[in-house]
């Protein structure tokens, strides 16, 4: 049976989850500031509770963003460190897809538009479909002005993510088309696990050099 560790620190806090023989355990981190204090401790505690060692993992999943740049580098670098030391396969997973996965797990949502605050007056967003719980991005992940966010399709769908709270006016018309709006939702490490399991089974494993964050915001955004 698959044994996977998952790290998600791209949002307002974060979490660490462990999958061992079909059973999922998780510890949540309350604030971004806490991430660096507790992430190694939580990994160690989850492994100890499950009675396994780091070297017994089949892979490490991490939320590769988009999200807080500083935060998602914590999960990335921690995953890289273990991958470097033990050769554990690394599995970057979209943090937007993790929110879509959580929507399916908690609310049975099959169609969603995830939109989170990207600061600098912009949002990260993508549309997801989850037929039977298998979450897949429908189109691309975007970084744009909130006014450019759209949902393509005639089916009913759920709008989710902090972007809807950060830009209520700009996203008002779009929100009215949604079946419901769940702005108060964050990606969780446990929701990386189904996507990482599928990636591992398909052999979609990253090397150290390409197990990197997906920032979406390009370097020329800092041009003065």
């Amino acid at each position: 049976m698959t044994r996977l560790l998952a790290l998600e620190t791209s949002g307002n806090g974060g979490s660490v989850a462990l999958l061992v023989d079909g059973a999922v355990t998780e510890r949540t981190i309350a604030t971004p500031r806490e991430q660096t204090n507790v992430i190694v401790e939580y990994i160690d505690a989850l492994l100890a509770d499950a009675g396994i060692e780091l070297g017994m993992l089949d892979g490490i999943a991490f939320g590769r963003g988009p999200g807080s740049f500083t935060g998602l580098r914590v999960a990335t670098a921690v995953a890289q460190g273990v991958g470097l030391a033990l050769g554990t396969p690394l599995l970057p997973v979209s943090s937007l897809a993790a929110v879509a996965q959580r929507l399916w797990r908690e609310h049975g949502v099959e169609h969603s538009l995830i939109c989170i605050d990207a600061r600098m007056g912009e949002v990260f967003w993508a549309q997801f479909a989850a037929p039977g719980g298998e979450v897949a991005v429908d189109g691309d992940e975007h970084l744009s002005d909130p006014a450019a966010v759209e949902y393509r399709g005639e089916n009913s769908w759920v709008a989710a993510g902090g972007g809807f709270a950060a830009y209520p006016t700009q996203l008002a018309a779009l929100s009215r088309r949604a079946e419901r709006v769940i702005a108060d939702i964050e990606p969780l490490a446990q929701d990386l696990l189904p996507l990482a399991t599928a990636a591992l089974a398909a052999g979609r494993v990253s090397t150290l050099a390409d197990a990197l964050p997906a920032y979406l915001r390009r370097e020329d955004a800092w041009q003065r």
Partner: peptide, 9 residues
């Protein structure tokens, strides 16, 4: 982050 996880592992 990388140093801590490398040392831990």
């Amino acid at each position: 982050s990388l140093a801590a996880s490398l040392g831990y592992a």
